[in-house]
């Protein structure tokens, strides 16, 4: 099997295709997402991130170029069903994607629609809820859950369809810090333990530092693509694209310009602590 689960080949997309010269929102994007990888997508509002996400599972179909999922062309109507059971989407607002009045019914919605046997549905729902740490809440009413818990239920609804890839469009934007952490940890675990490919769109730089690969979008194109260390080393481009450096990176830069001898490429608080500690030791402060 192809090592890439999703491939974009010179893809462009404009919302109002009826209008001649409607501005393209995604422009000439060529991209492949490796099976089992964890890819973060950054970019300011309106840079084309969400459109890119929707092109991944045939919610949108490109006007020019081609998107394939496991080799299936998303423009082929006959394959839409198979594409959507391969790549699932989780959206920003937890309240807009919960359909049932009981948590486990909500998770069962996807597999039911796929025509899975009731016994198998039971097994999948239990397994999916366990994998996101929500099994104990299976009989709860969704509106009694916190935002982070609702997002985890939404994720379980996707994994119960045994999708190979999850695309999450700013799943943490409306959550408090604890909810954000819950969602991030859940997604990381699904990626690590079940090998599910993750495409994670976010405005939070510290979430992006936890991915294997970071894409930065601006004006419909991908302007940076690499490991978090590589991407965040292009400070000017990041700032010009309307983004920030992770706070730990900003702080380390400040210290380096003050003459502290810290290594380049610090992205997380943990790395920053290690580096300052090592430097302090060298200077004999402790």
């Amino acid at each position: 099997m192809n090592e890439n689960i999703i491939e974009f080949n010179n893809v462009s997309f404009a919302y109002d295709s009826e209008i001649v010269n409607a501005p393209a929102v995604v422009k000439n994007v060529t991209l492949s997402i490796k099976r089992g990888s964890f890819v973060a997508v950054l970019g300011h509002n309106g840079s084309g991130k969400s459109t890119l996400a929707k092109l991944c599972n045939a919610i949108l179909v490109p006007q020019t170029g081609k998107v394939t999922v496991n080799g299936m062309d998303t423009a082929d109507n006959g394959l839409t069903f198979d594409i959507r059971r391969t790549v699932g989407m989780v959206f920003q607002n937890p309240d807009n994607q919960i359909v049932a009045t009981v948590v486990e019914d909500d998770v069962a919605f996807g597999p039911e629609n796929l025509g899975v046997e009731p016994k198998e549905i039971r097994r999948r729902v239990d397994e999916a809820l366990k994998s996101v740490g929500m099994y104990d809440y299976r009989l709860f009413e969704p509106h009694k859950l916190s935002g982070g818990q609702k997002q985890r239920v939404a994720i379980a609804g996707i994994t119960a369809m045994q999708t190979e890839c999850i695309v999450l469009d700013e799943p943490t934007a409306m959550l408090d810090p604890r909810g954000r952490l819950e969602v991030m940890e859940t997604v990381k675990r699904l990626n690590r333990e079940l090998g599910i490919t993750v495409v994670f769109i976010t405005h939070f730089m510290n979430e992006a530092t936890q991915a294997d690969r970071v894409l930065v979008m601006d004006d419909g194109g991908i302007i940076l693509d690499g490991t978090p260390k590589e991407v965040f080393s292009h400070k000017e481009i990041i700032i010009d694209a309307g983004l920030d450096l992770p706070a730990a990176a900003e702080f380390s830069d400040m210290l380096i310009s003050d003459g502290f001898n810290l290594p380049d490429g610090i992205l997380t608080a943990e790395e920053c602590i290690e580096a300052i500690y090592a430097e302090a030791k060298k200077r004999g402060v402790c």
Binding site: H44, Q92, M205
Partner: peptide, 8 residues
């Protein structure tokens, strides 16, 4: 600032 990008 909920839901806004860093510049916003």
């Amino acid at each position: 600032t909920a839901g806004l990008d860093p510049r916003g």
